[in-house]
Measured scan of single mutants.
Amino acid sequence: TTFEIRVGDLRITLHNADEEEIRWAEEALRRGIHADEILRTLEERRR
């Protein structure tokens, strides 16, 4: 599944994310964390 998060002009697309990952990514985007860093962190958490 694919889920797109939008916060203002910012956007990130997550693939195969669970609800916790989606909530975490949305909050991180709101705090101004760059999408590349969010994706990198999620990848590390999945390992």
Rank of each mutant, 00 (worst) to 15 (best):
L14P: 00
E37M: 11
R46H: 11
E20F: 12
R23Q: 13
L29K: 01
N16S: 05
H15K: 04
R23G: 07
I5G: 02
F3D: 15
V7A: 02
R23P: 02
L39H: 13
A25S: 04
D9M: 03
F3S: 15
E27Y: 04
T41S: 12
F3T: 15
H34N: 12
V7R: 00
H34P: 14
A25N: 00
G8A: 03
W24Q: 03
E44A: 09
T41N: 08
H15Q: 05
T41W: 10
H34Y: 10
T2S: 15
I5Q: 05
I12S: 00
G32E: 05
R6E: 15
E43G: 10
R40A: 10
N16G: 06
R11F: 14
V7N: 02
G32W: 03
A17L: 06
H15G: 03
L39Y: 14
E19Q: 13
R11I: 15
D36T: 10
A35V: 11
I33S: 07
H15E: 05
E19V: 14
R6K: 14
R47D: 09
I5H: 01
W24L: 07
A35F: 04
V7G: 01
R47G: 11
T1L: 15
E4R: 00
L29A: 06
E21M: 12
R23L: 09
I33P: 01
I22S: 04
E43S: 11
I38A: 02
R47E: 11
L39C: 11
N16R: 04
H34R: 09
I5V: 13
E27D: 13
R47F: 09
H34G: 13
D36C: 14
L42A: 02
R40K: 12
F3M: 15
D9F: 03
T2N: 15
A35P: 14
E27G: 09
R47L: 12
G8Q: 02
A28R: 06
R23N: 07
E20M: 10
R46C: 07
I38H: 00
T2I: 15
T13V: 12
F3C: 15
H34W: 08
R6W: 15
R11T: 15
L10H: 11
L10C: 06
A17R: 03
T1H: 14
E26Y: 11
E43A: 13
E26M: 08
L10S: 11
L29I: 07
I12V: 14
T41P: 01
R23H: 11
I12A: 01
E20C: 13
R11K: 14
W24E: 03
E19F: 10
L42F: 06
D9K: 03
L42S: 02
N16I: 04
F3E: 15
E19I: 13
I5M: 03
L29P: 00
E21Q: 08
F3G: 15
V7I: 11
R31Q: 13
